[in-house]
Amino acid sequence: MARIAAGGLELDYELIGPGNGPPLVLTPGGRYPRDTAGVPELGQIFAEHGYRVLLWDRPGCGASDIAFTAPSESVMNCEALVALVGVLGLRNITLVGGSAGSRISLMAAARMPENVRKISIWWISGGPVGLAGLAWFYCGDQIAAASKGGMEAVVQLPSWADQIARNPGVRDTLLAQDPWDYIDTMQRWGKAFGYSDESPVPGMAPEDFARLTMPIQVFRSGRSDMAHTRRTSEWVHELLPNSQMFEPPWGDDEWNYVSTFPIDSANRRGRFERWPLIAPMVLDFLRD
């Protein structure tokens, strides 16, 4: 475990696996930290198969810092990843991620396509209602709190409790914001999740997908998954020049099923706890 300055922020990360192994970046979803149940377990499987695995906390997640200067939270995260990969000197990387981690992987790859060997993604957030839900989940409670009680109310929100406990500097950064400027920022960040008929992934234009000519593994979302719609996964596959569509190793109702799981890191429970099930299919795809 370590912290490093990258892109103007201090990011918390861990590298596991053989030092000379091919680098693989594993990015979780939500605002969940890198030690969320299922994520390090999946990373350990990759490490045991020879990969040098980067587990990292995105800005505003876990113990990493946060800033509010980027045009969207997703841009902040993907640019942080590009900067982190550069500072660590990782070359010819593989990007693996689910949910928000799939979006960040695609956006980061579009900014450094020459440095990405392969990509594997699942649970790609999308659809009009699914994206509207993200805007509210990530930004709505922030706006409501700031408008009623200023930044003192924002730092009391449950959505920041874990980050502040791990990194008290996050509280200081939040309290340093002018509440009305913060509301404006959250409005912009919320708008960035808006659905478009031009692209399935907010922050990715059709020409961004066209740049991703490396082999990409796309797992089809379940028909019952309204957060990561099936059509979103199929649309992403259609836009990518060199992708393959795979059926996931779980049933159609997987997202609805795991959404009932308790978030309990101590007992290794949570929405990502079954992610290790995907490892054999990802490893098979990553073989040269």
Rank of each mutant, 00 (worst) to 15 (best):
G38V: 00
A165T: 11
T232K: 07
E152M: 11
L239F: 10
A165F: 07
G8Y: 01
G133M: 11
G222M: 06
I143L: 04
A63W: 12
G62V: 06
A63F: 12
G86T: 09
S72D: 01
G17F: 00
V85L: 00
P59Y: 03
T27D: 11
F193S: 02
G169K: 05
L42K: 14
V170H: 02
W123R: 15
F285R: 11
M204H: 09
I183K: 02
S221M: 02
D184E: 11
E73K: 14
M76V: 00
A192N: 13
M112D: 05
I124E: 01
H228I: 00
M151A: 08
E10C: 03
G60R: 07
M281K: 15
P241H: 04
V129E: 13
E254H: 15
F285C: 07
M151N: 07
T94M: 07
P128K: 13
S159Y: 08
E10W: 11
G60M: 02
T213I: 07
L54P: 15
A279C: 08
R269S: 13
E79I: 06
W136Y: 15
K191A: 01
P113I: 08
V154K: 05
G270M: 06
A2W: 01
H228V: 01
D253G: 13
E198F: 00
G130N: 12
H228G: 04
L84R: 10
N242G: 05
F68R: 11
A6N: 03
S259L: 00
S259R: 07
V282T: 12
A165H: 11
G38I: 01
Y257N: 13
A176H: 09
T232G: 02
M186W: 04
N115P: 04
G60Y: 02
G19K: 14
R91Y: 02
V53G: 12
Y32D: 15
R211D: 01
E14C: 09
L286Q: 12
A192R: 14
H49V: 00
G17Y: 01
P59S: 02
A165D: 10
R271C: 10
G38R: 08
T229F: 03
A2I: 08
N167Q: 09
G21I: 04
Q44K: 15
V116E: 06
G149V: 02
L90S: 02
W56V: 08
G169N: 07
G150M: 06
N256H: 14
S74T: 14
N115C: 03
T260D: 11
V154T: 06
F272W: 09
R230F: 03
R220D: 06
N167R: 13
Y182F: 05
A210K: 13
I119S: 05
L95H: 04
A192G: 07
A37R: 09
N167E: 07
A37P: 10
G169D: 01
A146G: 00
G149P: 07
I124H: 01
A165M: 08
R103T: 12
F246Q: 05
S99N: 03
P71T: 09
Y182L: 03
G127K: 06
A227C: 15
H237W: 10
R103E: 03
V85P: 04
R111C: 10
L212I: 11
V87Q: 13
V129L: 14
A210R: 12
